[in-house]
Nucleic acid binder design. Structure first.
Lengths: 359, 359
DNA sequence: GTGAAAGCGCTAACAG
DNA sequence: CTGTTAGCGCTTTCAC
């Protein structure tokens, strides 16, 4: 019943030629007569031949598969990035194996090992931490890879790896700058996982801005937290319970900002009247009417697609490919959650919106 | 520089044994002396041996890879489902290749072909349409597969395929029933792609409810649409422009409801005071304060995980696995977008919420 | 307990 | 233009 899949050999036999000839036809090589080519293609079509890519991979040492390793596909930041990777991959003839790490080094290690065992041609990786211990082996063993979204900062090594990330430092700076321009001087900060490069950089940028604008911060205003809605919510709650609570909160990603927003609303405050709120990433949700989250933009799809493009270069050219160290520009997206929705910081009443500019 | 990856042969040589023995050790077969086993494992560890899964797949005819084919990973319905698949797959020892179809049969076909060429052990598929032409070949060729979220309805064939979906019919019914209980008798319906089983069933359920409650509908109230925010927005706009506009709208997924909501707000109306709005799927966004979308729930993660479990059974047992035809229960989630947030339909004022029950 | 040989399906020399 | 041979890395009889 379960008839064996037809192989190149079967076709060869039916066509009265050698497997080699069939192989050449299947790979569109020249040196085959047109009649032969047609005959073989006809047979292949008739018996519904499908080349065995595994076998091909074995001899070619190319699997046309890449691995995409991210924290969590259900985190609203990643789906678009994954889509960018997938679509570009398809365009370039690759398939992508999706791997979650749940933000743990252990799982990341397992995933990398498995992908390598599967002979993927390369790996796109959003690192768990900025001192990720598993990257070095990739480099040493000449496995093509590119870091995406999150990179590493290991001194002496981070300069040698390909990456494409946002300019998180300036993003963090801009977030605080915006709040400062609106007159805030007690700004709560809820950080992402500080061992990730994104949160570390966003925080660094934020602190620089705080310094530049002479906003001395007491430590209680910065809550070390994680990239999750629930933990951000808790952090926001403790910020709200401070004796001298902040008038604005910078949550280091939009998902966390949503969590902070929940805390604010549940505490009976309103955004932005009582508390201004700024996020990061510009995920889909941020732009919904009623959410209107001011944030720092990220081109997630483009990042994914570009990452795949770079990886493809690495795969093709091996070591001779030039290093790609790309920092995408971070842009402030002004909506209503900080009390303004106009560019240029001109004070205006918003019809039907929540605006409070009488500070 | 790029030293070849060590193989079983290398180990054999170093240990002074045959490749067979090494293979047996690697596969935890008995009949090998403990000393030999230890020696081989030690060498493998030292030279950092990693089995070549491609080679293994070739001889075993098992790749421990499955394909997941969905419309679009960036559609907010899918990430959680994908996560369910991925995590269960990992638990069972599989890797998953992620494929988008962008809701086109052409791409779906290409993806299926590629996956089969790659010798995946099975496929989890959210069909493009309920008469999907590419399923039959899978069945005929005994490729293990399970339909997820969307199934097929082809008479005489649909009974023979495994699937796990929501009970969309009763979901559609409940949506209308809810609106009816709240007193609405002019209900706009914005459908998903009607060639998909989900939209077809939701619509069928909705129509049945309309009938049951003697709500005669004129055709202009039903807008045939697509599962996209933008098209739903347009559909909602035309609904709002109707001479006798509906007092409630049933959008067949939450993402579309968000689109409809935009249209409603931009037209200067409010939800639910002017227009009640009900969605479907219970995506993350639906529960945000300020959105508060009443909807029909779907356990997306569980659906993905269960789908993977079923597929694994099919893979293990082949044809002897019993057919799984699972319909998950659809539950109404009452929030504020229809004017109530209390269970039991008791009229109550909601503090701080938008409620209008003086109809 | 261990090894020799064959083969999974395909492609890459090299011949002719 | 086409065929022969060898081999990718692994597992699987079947001997010993």
């Amino acid at each position: 019943m379960v008839k064996k899949k037809p192989t190149i050999k079967d076709i060869a036999q039916m066509a009265g030629v050698s497997p080699t000839t069939v192989s050449m036809v299947m790979n569109n090589r020249p040196r085959v007569s047109d009649e032969m080519r047609d005959k073989i293609m006809a047979i292949a079509g008739k018996i519904n031949y499908r080349p065995n890519l595994l076998a091909r991979s074995m001899v070619n040492r190319r699997s046309f598969t890449i691995g995409l390793i991210i924290n969590d596909i259900a985190d609203p930041f990643y789906p678009e990035l994954a889509k960018g990777v997938e679509e570009k991959a398809r365009e370039l003839g690759f398939h992508v194996i999706l791997c979650n790490t749940n933000n743990t080094h252990e799982l990341e290690k397992i995933q990398i090992e498995m992908l390598r065992s599967r002979n993927v041609d390369g790996i796109i990786l959003s690192t768990v931490s900025c001192n990720d211990p598993h990257i070095r082996a990739l480099k040493d063993d000449a496995v093509p890879f590119v870091l995406i979204n999150r990179t590493i900062t290991t001194p002496g090594f981070s300069e040698e790896v390909d990456y494409i990330v946002l300019d998180n430092y300036s993003g963090g700076y801009k977030a605080i700058e915006h709040l400062h321009r609106l007159g805030h001087d007690r700004i709560g900060i809820i950080t992402g996982d500080l061992n990730s490069s994104t949160a570390a950089e966003r925080t660094r940028g934020a602190i620089k801005a705080l310094d530049d604008f002479n906003l001395q911060q007491d430590a209680s205003l910065t809550k070390e937290c994680h990239y999750s809605r629930s933990s951000a919510k808790k952090a926001a709650q403790s910020l709200l319970n401070l004796e001298n609570r902040p008038t604005a909160i910078f949550a280091q990603d939009d998902n966390m900002a949503i969590g902070a927003r929940e805390a604010i609303i549940e505490a009976g405050y309103t955004v932005p009247e009582d508390i201004a709120l700024i996020g990061f990433d510009d995920i889909d949700m941020a732009s919904l009417a009623g959410i209107d989250l001011t944030t720092i933009s990220q081109k997630k799809y483009e990042m994914g697609a570009a990452g795949m493009e770079i990886l493809s270069q690495k795969i093709e050219k091996g070591n001779s490919a030039k290093l790609s160290r790309i920092k995408l520009k971070a842009e402030l997206i002004i909506r209503k959650s900080c009390g303004y929705n106009l560019y240029g910081y001109k004070k205006t009443k918003i019809i039907g919106g929540h605006v409070n500019d009488e500070r």
